[in-house]
Simulated assay, not measured.
Amino acid sequence: DLDKRLCHARKTWVEAKEKDIVFGKDQKWADVEADETTFDRMDLGNKAPDPKNPVVWEQWCGIVQRGHPETLVLSRLSPRESAKRAPGPGAIRKVEWTPLAKKWLQDKKVILHTDSAKSYKTRVPGVLHDKVVHGKKRVKVKGQWKWKSGTQVVDRAWKFLKDRLTINQNAKVGSSLLRAKLRSAQYQYWYRNQDMWVASGTLCEWLMTKFIKKPSQ
């Protein structure tokens, strides 16, 4: 239907344009936030490889520069299966965070704000890490130490995306439709401060140039 086509069109745009994102290009030591979240879970039941851990998760990592919603990048993770009663798959693993940090942040001279998960402690050249404890960071204001929210931007981004996702039997863990819907929500987040009609027009024109060969001049 039309909604699915729009989601897939936006997904194509986002996955192409996301490659051009550069953190910290407009300033040195820009503030960048990183976090992971889950969008859905599925109990595999007797089809699970390990009966004790039958639940699989749709978990993604997000990185965004403060003040620049158009820099939100998303990466799908591969968390371990969990027990039925587990509240989630756990924090991002070091084996997954390290290549993401090197790809997007290495030598960019940014200040990285994350929660206190050990995986984020990976040392990356050109990155200063300001870890957050329970969603807050400790900063010095007029000679006094105070707690200040640390990952509020990416937290709001997660809420924005989840508010625009509809999880059903067709859009579920591992499905291409769920990924398309998530990328579509990412597209909306990028352009949330712009005229969406203009953005959609640019998207349509871009798609036309991809699928229709222009006549020779």
Rank of each mutant, 00 (worst) to 15 (best):
V64W: 00
P87A: 14
P54C: 03
W60C: 01
P79Y: 06
H68D: 13
S78G: 04
R80N: 12
A86N: 09
R66T: 03
R76F: 12
Q65E: 15
L77Y: 13
P51V: 03
P79C: 08
A86E: 11
G88L: 10
V64H: 00
D50M: 01
P51Y: 04
V64I: 09
S75H: 14
A83T: 12
S78H: 08
P69W: 01
L72G: 05
D50Y: 01
V56E: 07
L74Y: 06
P69H: 02
E70V: 04
L77D: 13
K84A: 09
R80Q: 13
G62Q: 01
A48K: 03
N53E: 04
E81I: 00
K52L: 15
L72C: 08
G88C: 12
V55N: 00
S78E: 09
Q65G: 05
G62W: 00
E58M: 12
S82L: 05
H68A: 12
K47S: 13
T71M: 03
P49S: 09
K52P: 10
V56L: 06
P69R: 02
G67P: 04
T71E: 03
G88Y: 09
E58Y: 10
P49W: 08
H68P: 06
W60L: 04
S75G: 08
P87Y: 14
Q59L: 12
K84Q: 11
L72D: 06
S75T: 11
R85F: 08
